[in-house]
Amino acid sequence: MSQSSIIPLTEGLPGQRIRIHHMTLEGTMRRRLLDLGFVPGSEVKVLQRSPLGDPVAFRVIHTTIALRKEESSQIFGEIIGGEYHESTH
């Protein structure tokens, strides 16, 4: 995975920081995500997967928001850093 490539949030690994590029969602869900801070240009940190693998918690403007993969797969961005860590416990 190259540093500059655009990936959906679903492919982000826990610990990675991703800068949002664009969203393909429309309607109410798009507005809701914008309100929560999933705005193009803003930074999102992948926190962790739920025990059954989905949803995934993201850190966005100092808050923690969990998204199902139906939504996070439609948000795209590039990895800008952060270290991958598997939930250690």
Partner: peptide, 9 residues
């Protein structure tokens, strides 16, 4: 107070 930026919206 712990999430001012989001709340500012």
């Amino acid at each position: 107070a712990t999430a001012m930026e989001r709340n500012m919206n």
